[in-house]
Design a protein around this nucleic acid. Structure first.
Lengths: 168, 168
DNA sequence: AGAAACTTTCAATAGTTTTTGAAAGTAGAA
DNA sequence: TTCTACTTTCAAAAACTATTGAAAGTTTCT
């Protein structure tokens, strides 16, 4: 495979992977384009390379900056902004995890906490069963939340050591 | 909060959480309804409870069966089918992980493998950089894949011991 | 201040995914 | 075999999400 074809293929595939990760297609494509491009790209470069509109490019670049997966970089003597991706894949994973923890785990934990306080007669079978189920889910999601919290606070060595232990 | 309100709230929230997990809203709602309902429910029961059409119910119940999160259960003397959810939340996590590994990690690994064989002059800087990046991503996704593989093959004790170690 | 070089916004449009419900299919009972 | 009680399918509609591009906004330079 030629370099251009390989880049194209990677960008497209990373784009569809993103879709399953709460990251939209364009956002993931911009990210992957920046991942495999050493030098900073301008909005124009990205628009041309991915054949997307200015508005779309702008919106998704900002989303990537929001997720801390991309940062602005100014070039001496240039007025426009350039963008570079976080290249350390462990950092990328960490930031995606942090963002998803905030957007998904934390809200569901709040709901679980609320519904666990369901009121009613003490001897009601149904209430007891409901509480039991909610409490098991709370326990599980809570553990997941604690692990992701730990991960977002640790360095890459912790991660690799951990993975090695798990696989061993 | 009253039991009915709590159930409703849980079903709605689990529904929106599902959306971020490759599970559509209705599918996640049916799953959560079955999770908090001890007795098997028929398609009619599910339709009435979630106010959805027959087609929608049928389609998503089948998807849940496909993911092995729900199973059919026949009731003596009844001609229609009833459904119950897998109630062990660790099993649920394991099955969702197995399904996502298959749908997301495996395809991207295949693409990474392909694009890593990019051809061109040995001393081309760009090719070397591209290969380096792809290889780092391959390494990372490969580790993730190995961990999820291990998880889907292990029992719940492995999981809880592991989580405890990670959090400790 | 005014012009040029950019970036951001947003209403309209396009594209995708989900949902509906009526019709077709299937299987048990009589 | 025919009736009946169900399940499945699928084309059309609705709902949702992403994209465009022109206009408005901002910043920098002279």
């Amino acid at each position: 495979m030629e370099l251009e074809a390989a880049r194209e293929k990677f960008v497209q595939s990373w784009g569809s992977l993103g879709t399953s990760w709460g990251i939209n297609r364009t956002m993931a494509q911009i990210h992957s384009l920046l991942l495999i491009t050493k030098k900073p790209l301008s909005a124009e470069d990205i628009m041309a390379s991915l054949q997307i509109s200015r508005g779309n490019a702008n919106m998704n670049i900002r989303a990537l900056i929001d997720w801390q997966l991309v940062r602005r970089e100014l070039q001496a003597g240039e007025r426009k902004e350039f963008f570079v991706a976080e290249k350390d894949i462990w950092e990328v994973a960490r930031r995606v995890t942090a963002e998803r923890k905030k957007r998904e785990l934390e809200p569901i934990l709040r709901v679980l906490e609320q519904v666990s306080h369901v009121k009613g007669p003490k001897d009601d079978e149904e209430i007891a069963e409901f509480k039991e189920m909610i409490s098991r889910i709370q326990d599980f999601v809570g553990k997941l939340d604690a692990v992701t919290e730990k991960m977002t606070k640790s360095d890459r060595n912790w991660f690799f050591r951990t993975v090695m232990k798990l696989m061993g």
